[in-house]
């Protein structure tokens, strides 16, 4: 593989993303985990820029690094976390989970790298503009777009109804 700017940028962003995710698993305080995960989301936005999806990168920063992280921090602050300073012991359950997930990852990586379907030389790359995305979104995928808006409305009302304090009778 030749070393060029895209490779270096991919390497940096992927190391940041995986590092943030590993930190999220290993840290003990919940708020630190939230910050590590926000960092991972930010790195994934950088990967979207590399993949010729600048609109998705902006959306990723707005929705994930901004909205979802803040929502989760609200969830953390509205609940109590008593035993978060204790280091959790390494149990049999964790060992089995590690083995299972490791096996899954090994199988997936093996399939990705041995399949000649993907690795026949340098594939042709298509360049997209944001206008193409808008045309596809509002012409081809018009009905799913409207259905998504209804879904968001339902989720909004559902979240309010679920989180509302029940009246005492």
């Amino acid at each position: 593989m030749n070393i060029n700017g895209e490779f270096i940028a991919f390497f940096i962003f992927s190391v940041l993303a995986i590092g943030g995710a590993v930190f999220m698993i290993n840290l003990t305080r919940v708020m630190h985990m939230a910050l590590a995960l926000a960092f991972t989301f930010f790195s994934i936005a950088g990967l979207y820029v590399l993949l010729d999806a600048p609109f998705l990168a902006v959306i990723q920063i707005l929705i994930y690094t901004g909205a979802v992280s803040i929502l989760m921090i609200f969830g953390i602050m509205l609940t109590k976390h008593k035993d978060e300073d204790k280091v959790a012991p390494f149990t049999v359950h964790k060992l089995l989970s590690l083995l299972g997930v490791g096996g899954f990852l090994a199988i997936v990586i093996w399939i990705i790298y041995r399949n000649p379907f993907f690795s026949t030389g340098e594939p042709q790359a298509a360049a997209f503009k944001v206008t193409d995305l808008g045309k596809a979104m509002f012409k081809t995928y018009m009905i799913p777009f409207e259905v998504t808006s209804i879904l968001l409305l339902v989720a909004l009302i559902g979240a309010i109804v679920l989180a509302k304090r029940e009246e005492k009778k």
Binding site: F74, G75, L152, A155, L156, A159
Partner: peptide
Amino acid sequence: IAIAAAEAAVGIAI
């Protein structure tokens, strides 16, 4: 992404 955002909101509410 839109569906994941809806899922996060409902999940936090639950």
